[in-house]
């Protein structure tokens, strides 16, 4: 500022108001306090706590985690179920969303699909225990159709967790995909169709490039949810075996062995792995087109 009036410097209140900080802005403080106290502080505390192990140097928890196959294998067990479920959800969601976007009355379908999300993994797990069991309707139908001769084992193994994640995860992925797909300007598709592109080419050359950024975000959010699977891995999986996911390891360390330091360390590792995958996906996304999905001029 070249002009200065040294005699009457504006009051603090006025200077703040110039930067749009006044009584209204202060309304933010309670919410900010909640987030800082209950979100930021616990994370920072957990990080510090994880560096103060019960025994050994500051990195002892992390060294213990990455040298014990029973612990570090949980990362692979988790990826092993969360990545396929996320990819499958996305692959299923895309064609269905393309079909549903043409519907006038989407409300009924979206309402049905929001139910499993709302009820959550615990109820789905409880239902699947019966439904997928050896005497459940799923196996009975397969036998009745003559596809199998004896019931196949779908519970307390990989497939139980897979099914439950798909049932809660697919609607989530689908509803997000639908909002992205509906966000693409229909004029673009009409233009392509006018120029003679068939459905396949319209998808590959018009929609997909526009959707990649949205789908990448969608993938990240779904993946992060699936990666932190806990209740269904315990109830439907083999929590000591092939579906011993990282959340189980963290829970056991903190609340069964009462080693909060180790529990925090595993929770931090869980967060870091999620961040790595999300970072990787977002980095790949940057190679694609980013911008408006509405028909822009020029």
């Amino acid at each position: 500022m070249a002009i200065s009036i040294p005699a009457s410097r504006p009051k603090l209140r006025q200077r703040l108001a110039l930067r749009q900080i006044d009584g209204v802005t202060l309304l933010l403080l309670p919410a900010l306090l909640v987030v800082v106290l209950l979100f930021v502080y616990p994370f920072a505390y957990g990080l510090l706590l994880s560096l103060r192990p019960k025994v050994g140097g500051f990195a002892a928890n992390y060294i213990a985690f990455f040298t014990d196959p029973y612990l570090y294998n949980t990362i692979f067990a988790t990826l092993n179920v969360s990545v396929p479920v996320t990819v499958l959800s996305l692959i299923l969601a895309l064609p269905i969303a393309f079909r549903v976007r043409l519907l006038k009355h989407q409300r009924l379908l979206t309402t049905i699909l929001v139910i499993p999300i709302t009820l959550g993994t615990v109820l789905v797990a409880e239902g699947l225990l019966n439904y997928l069991g050896p005497q459940g309707w799923f196996n009975r139908t397969l036998i009745w159709l003559g596809l199998i001769h004896s019931p196949i084992r779908l519970l307390h193994n990989y497939w139980g967790v897979f099914a439950s994640l798909l049932i809660t995860g697919f609607p989530f992925t689908f509803l997000m995909t639908l909002s992205y797909v509906s966000g693409v300007d229909p004029a673009l598709e009409r233009a392509a169709a006018t120029l003679g592109a068939n459905a396949g080419r319209r998808f590959w050359h018009i929609f997909l490039p526009l959707l990649v950024p949205g789908l990448a975000i969608n993938f990240c959010l779904s993946f992060v949810q699936n990666f932190s699977v806990f209740p269904s891995a315990v109830l439907l999986g083999a929590p000591a075996g092939e579906t011993r996911v990282i959340a189980i390891a963290a829970y056991q360390a903190a609340f069964e062995h009462y080693d909060y330091s180790m529990g925090s360390a595993i929770a931090i590792i869980m967060g870091v792995v999620q961040l790595l995958v999300v970072g990787l996906v977002l980095a790949v996304r940057n190679l694609f087109y980013r911008g408006s999905t509405t028909g822009a001029k020029g």
Binding site: F39, L47, L49, F230, Y260, G263, I266, A267
Partner: peptide, 9 residues
């Protein structure tokens, strides 16, 4: 689950 464990601690 990620925030829950440090928060519960």
């Amino acid at each position: 689950m990620t925030i829950g464990i440090p928060l519960a601690t």
